[in-house]
């Protein structure tokens, strides 16, 4: 639990797959940021799920996102990970890559990992195979057909199993894990991808108090070496993370600051308690 066995990547380094969509050197606000959303809007059948949303995540930062239901938290993640294309606005990764021009697989390979609200693991695979598939590797069809497990991969998987405390469940079929174990396995899978930015949707949902506490610890450890964006409802959980908070409301940023600052904000109180 003390060390995340992930090679620390330079937050400014661009992975080989990440192409330059913006000419290097062009002065933009995005320079120096890991993730930069500017004036992003998207509508579904006339409903504005995201409305002129702007946000900057710095390299190495951990950020919590809160907001009432329908505030656009999940849609925002969909836009960053390429599932949804915004109607307008820029989404710039590492100051160089326009994410709106890429699909889910390409964005994942650039180093953005996503954990879903409902734990989503490969239920008929063993815990081991779940992690094996998640490991950063050449994911093209024919290399995958002929690749055998290597010593390095075994070591890495063992580290991840220890980290997520699933060591004893190595050969267990993921479908038979408990809810909390699945959440942890999914976080392990996310780390196996060796991403630079982790997007984590409600990691504490459905967990016991003890599990929630452990999860907060785990995320804080992960944040030592990764940039993390966490969406959560649980205020105690956010408080235990002790990070900068962004409040979303009706698809745009309502307030930003420490948890104490935003909780003192009159408009945030109105939104959460109802007018």
């Amino acid at each position: 639990m003390t060390r995340i066995p992930t090679p620390v990547m330079q937050a400014t380094a661009v992975p080989a797959e990440a192409p330059f969509d913006i000419s290097p050197g062009a002065p933009t606000m995005a320079a120096g940021s890991l993730l930069y959303l500017d004036n992003v809007s998207v509508s579904f059948d006339g409903f504005r799920a995201i409305n002129k949303l702007s946000m900057i995540i710095k390299p190495g930062e951990m950020r919590a996102i809160i907001g009432p239901n329908g505030a656009g938290k999940t849609t925002m993640m969909d836009i960053i990970t390429g599932k949804t294309r915004p109607d307008e606005g820029d989404v710039i990764y590492q100051g160089k890559v326009d994410l709106t021009k890429h699909d889910e697989a390409a964005i994942a390979n650039m180093g953005i990992g996503r954990k879903f609200q409902k734990p989503t693991v490969f239920e008929s695979h063993s815990v081991y195979d779940n992690l094996l598939l998640a490991l950063k590797q050449d994911r093209r069809v024919f290399p995958m057909l002929f690749r055998l497990p290597s010593k390095d991969e075994q070591t890495r998987i063992d580290e991840l199993l220890a980290l997520t405390r699933l060591g004893d469940l190595r050969e267990t079929v993921a479908g038979s894990l408990s809810h909390g174990q699945k959440q942890w396995l999914e976080i392990g899978m996310l780390l196996a991808q060796d991403p630079q930015l982790l997007l984590i949707d409600e990691p504490a949902a459905g967990m016991t108090d003890a599990e929630t506490e452990e999860t907060a610890k785990l995320l804080k450890d992960i944040a030592q070496t990764h940039s993390v964006v966490v969406v959560e409802h649980d205020m105690d959980f956010i408080r235990s993370l002790g990070v900068r908070v962004t409040v979303l409301h009706e698809g745009s940023v309502l307030a930003e600051g420490s948890l104490d600052q935003v909780s003192a904000n009159q408009r945030v109180v109105e939104v959460y308690l109802g007018r």
Partner: peptide, 18 residues
């Protein structure tokens, strides 16, 4: 294994980079 992953959770595999 990827095929089975796609069968069981297609979008998860996609967000994993497959």
């Amino acid at each position: 294994k990827v095929l089975i992953a796609v069968r069981d959770a297609e979008s998860r595999s996609r967000f994993m980079g497959y």
